[in-house]
């Protein structure tokens, strides 16, 4: 038996059908066709499926789709605005903070959550903030650089207010 799930994704009202047991990540990927959110493990370790749910970073493989009913979800697809990359996206690109790109969406959303709560994090704080996101390619060095660069850029350039930001 499926039920209708309505939610606000990246500022847009969306709805789809989900069995009670369907995980949010499958709902996003298969029902809403938002395939930027990835799956890399069975146990909630890899963080590839990280999205923001009501402003909080969560692993969407450990949330049920029905639990997102009426709530706000931010995924990687929502960061680019009017054809312009978000400072985090720019920084990951410029600092080679990615290789295969598979962890990148989750990594960027964890970083976004960090920067909204701590606009100028230390290296240690950045490393703690992304410790729930495995990257298998980069050894994290350039990811940390990218997050720091983005934080500097965002400090000088006010982030376009997110339609979903809950503070």
């Amino acid at each position: 038996m499926k039920r209708k799930v309505s939610l606000r994704v990246n500022g847009e009202e969306r709805e789809g059908w989900a069995e009670d047991r369907m995980l949010l990540v499958h709902f996003l990927r298969d029902e809403l066709n938002l395939t930027g959110t990835h799956i890399g493990c069975d146990t909630g370790h890899c963080g590839a499926c990280t999205v923001l749910l009501d402003g909080k970073s969560v692993k969407s493989c450990m949330v049920l789709a029905v639990q997102a009913q009426g709530r706000k979800v931010e995924t990687i697809e929502g960061l680019e605005r009017e054809g312009k990359l978000h400072p985090l996206q720019e920084a990951f690109r410029e600092h080679h903070g990615l290789q295969c790109g598979y962890c990148t969406p989750g990594m960027i959303l964890s970083s976004l959550y960090l920067l909204r709560h701590n606009p100028s994090p230390s290296e240690e704080e950045i490393r703690r903030a992304i410790s729930g996101n495995l990257c298998r390619c980069t050894g994290y060095v350039n990811i940390v650089k990218a997050v720091r660069a983005a934080s500097e850029r965002m400090a000088t350039r006010v982030e376009a207010p997110s339609t979903e930001e809950t503070g």
Binding site: G44, G47, T50, K56, S57, V58, K59, M62, V63, S110, Y113, L114, R128, A129, S131, G132, N133
Partner: peptide, 9 residues
């Protein structure tokens, strides 16, 4: 405990 995402939930 675990990581930020898990602590958030």
């Amino acid at each position: 405990i675990a990581d930020q995402q898990i602590r958030n939930r």
